[in-house]
Computed example of a mutant assay.
Amino acid sequence: MSQENNEVTVGQASQACGPAGEPCAPGQAKACTVREVLDRVGGKWSIGILVAASQGPVRFTELERRVEGISRRMLTLTLRNLERDGLLHRTVHPTVPPRVEYTATPIALELHGALVALTDWAERHRSAIADARATYDRARGAAD
C-alpha cells in the first residue's frame, strides 16, 4: 500500500477513530482511515486479546494471564478501544461481584484467521529474526 492510500476510508464511521480517540461533534463524524484500522487491530496488545476472545467468552483476569506482559491499565484501555471499534462485546453479568466477559464480534471473528496466521508466522520465524538482528548488530558494531 502506498503512502497515498492511507486516506482511504473504511465504511461510514459515526465517530472519529483517530489516534486521540476523541469523538467528533454531532454531524462532524469522519471515517476511519485504513491506517487507523490497521494500527488498532495490529497494535502490540490487540492481537493477543482478539485471538483469545475469538475462542469464546473470556474474562479480564484470564486475558491478563494470556496476554504476556500487559499491565492492567493497558489491558483496560485496549479492551475499551476494541469495544469502541466494534471488535469486542462486553457483557456484565449481574452477580456479586459482577462478572464481566468479552467476546469477539462477527467482524473480529472474520479477522481471526489473519491474526492467527500472523502470530504463527512470527512464532516460526522468531529465531531467524533474532539471528538476523544479532548478525546485523555485530556487523554495525564492527563497522562503527
Rank of each mutant, 00 (worst) to 15 (best):
G27K: 06
Q28E: 12
Q28L: 10
Q28K: 13
A29S: 14
K30M: 08
K30N: 06
K30W: 01
A31N: 15
T33H: 09
V34A: 13
V34Q: 09
R35S: 08
E36Q: 15
E36A: 14
V37M: 14
V37Q: 10
V37K: 11
L38T: 12
L38Q: 14
L38S: 12
D39H: 03
D39G: 03
R40H: 09
V41T: 10
G42N: 11
G42H: 05
G43S: 13
K44D: 11
K44Q: 14
K44N: 10
K44L: 13
W45K: 05
W45P: 02
S46C: 11
S46I: 04
S46W: 03
S46E: 07
S46K: 03
G48C: 02
G48F: 00
I49M: 01
L50W: 03
A52H: 04
A52M: 09
A53M: 08
A53Q: 04
S54M: 07
S54C: 15
P57W: 05
P57F: 10
P57S: 14
P57V: 12
P57R: 13
R59K: 15
F60E: 09
T61F: 05
L63T: 06
E64W: 01
R66A: 15
R66L: 15
R66W: 08
R66I: 12
V67P: 02
V67M: 05
V67R: 05
I70G: 00
I70T: 00
S71E: 02
R72D: 11
R72T: 11
M74G: 02
L75M: 14
T76A: 13
L77M: 11
T78M: 13
T78E: 12
L79N: 13
R80Q: 14
R80V: 10
N81I: 06
L82W: 01
L82G: 03
R84H: 10
D85N: 02
D85I: 00
G86W: 02
L87A: 01
L88G: 03
L88Y: 01
L88Q: 02
L88P: 04
H89Q: 12
H89V: 14
H89I: 12
T91P: 00
T91V: 10
V92A: 04
V92S: 03
H93I: 11
H93Y: 06
P94C: 04
T95P: 00
V96L: 14
V96S: 14
V96W: 06
P97L: 06
P97W: 03
R99A: 09
R99E: 06
Y102T: 06
Y102F: 15
Y102E: 07
Y102R: 09
T103D: 07
A104P: 08
T105R: 05
T105A: 04
T105V: 07
I107G: 01
I107P: 15
A108G: 05
